[in-house]
Design a protein around this nucleic acid. Structure first.
Lengths: 247, 247
DNA sequence: TTTAAATATAGGTTTGACAAATATGGTTGT
DNA sequence: ACAACCATATTTGTCAAACCTATATTTAAA
């Protein structure tokens, strides 16, 4: 039986082992890219069976904390944490929250307006040619009428991602994954069907130009016009939908 | 062999099954609080063994998507997603990133300044008595010299959490978990030792008073003074540490 | 020297069984 | 008739032993 520091059993054995290893990673006893003992060895040390060890490892793998490879030079390795790796986790959770109706569109629009305004301001100050080029490329793609709706959505996300990157602030980039990966698609999902992509592209261009000439207020103005537009389209879609269901 | 929609095998079987169930949850085929088939039944349906099913379920459990109970009325249930449940995941990942030195203190301070300014502004507009009382209680606790350093830190986190809650914006609250649970402790870790808690409490009080009278600019001013102070203390700590190691 | 095959080592999967927890339902005593 | 209690069925949790599969290293042959 595995005991924690209190000598009290908390949760299943697999959970205890997972927590134990997680702690070791978090407080640095296990370094990045370090190789853990083999599953057999872990089972022996913890005094549990190999399947239980595997359950524990799977929990950690689901959190992107470890990764396993087969073969002689294989084994279980501590993952180097990367903001991008978090993207999936945060996106899944936020999407679920949105899907269950935890947030309404006004809240989301407000959050986007405030947080993306920060990005505009910092991007205007710190942007490099690299991110400007990335944003330019997305605008070009979005301008092409041959671009499908799915591609347009994906490009929209990449455009805003580049804007965040242009702010050159790691912690902010981490936080913005939530809004980028979850809230932007949610906002767009209802809008894109209206086929008013030209307007969106035009506002994207205004934002990019403003950021390029380091004109933060203009960038924020364009952002707010974009969000106002999206919100209006959302309401229009709702109205249309209501009228359709009433008929 | 389990195949995905492309007919191509991607990752281990357990991973495929986990992804399959996750998708079912995310696009609503599995409702909240719904009971999944038993592990045996799942194994039969997917054509795999029960331990493999269990590995898949553990991955999902690690993401707080499902929960299992034993007994006749037990089984595996789809969890209702809650923002608080995400806290742990985001915190762990962000703490890891900070711990590995992915961010420097200036980036963190900048991110805090910008994002918490938003909270100040929205809180000044939307705050209710409930959150004001919560912040007041934390200030009282922080003023008590009998409060230990650990308690002071925890109280500091709760104070800022209440500030975020006062903004009354769910999506923003979700995003702010990162800064609240990971960045604030990191910022404080080095500072609290200097025992200059009075100054911090005083600035907390300025923030609370400004929010109470809906004076957003004053709240933001107090916030910026707080962060300037923390940054100065951080630099002083570094200098002291350098001098000590040089001696 | 280069290439190809054998081998050892690690995780991945299966089978089968038993343990532990717990709601259900029947039994017994009042 | 009703309530307390216990047996049981169901479901997850854990274990054990074996085999499969992928892969780096080593070895042998061209």
């Amino acid at each position: 039986m595995v005991l924690n520091y209190d000598g009290v059993v908390r949760g299943s054995v697999a959970k205890q082992v997972a927590d134990s290893i997680r702690e070791a990673i978090m407080d640095g006893r296990l370094k990045m890219d370090e190789r853990l003992p083999t599953e057999e060895e872990l089972a022996r040390r913890f005094g549990i069976s190999r399947p239980t060890v595997r359950e524990a490892l799977k929990r950690l793998a689901a959190q992107n904390l470890i990764q396993s490879k087969r073969g002689p030079s294989g084994g279980t390795f501590v993952m180097r944490p990367d903001p991008a790796g978090l993207s999936g986790t945060i996106t899944a959770a936020a999407t679920l929250l949105v899907g269950v109706g935890a947030f309404d569109i006004d809240e989301i629009i407000t959050a986007r307006r405030e947080t993306e305004a920060i990005c505009c301001r910092l991007a205007a100050a710190n942007r490099k040619e690299e991110e400007l080029a990335a944003m330019e490329a997305e605008i070009t793609l979005q301008s092409d009428s041959a671009t499908s709706d799915e591609e347009f959505c994906a490009s929209d996300v990449r455009f805003h991602r580049a804007l965040v990157r242009a702010s050159r602030n790691g912690p902010l980039e981490l936080m913005m994954y939530t809004v980028i990966e979850a809230f932007i698609p949610i906002t767009n999902m209802i809008v894109v069907r209206m086929r008013e992509r030209q307007q969106i592209v035009s506002l994207h261009r205004d934002m990019l130009d403003a950021v390029r000439r380091s004109d933060a207020p203009a960038a924020i103005t364009a952002l707010e016009r974009l969000l106002d537009y999206l919100r209006a389209m959302y309401n229009a879609t709702l109205t249309a939908r209501a009228a359709r269901s009433a008929s």
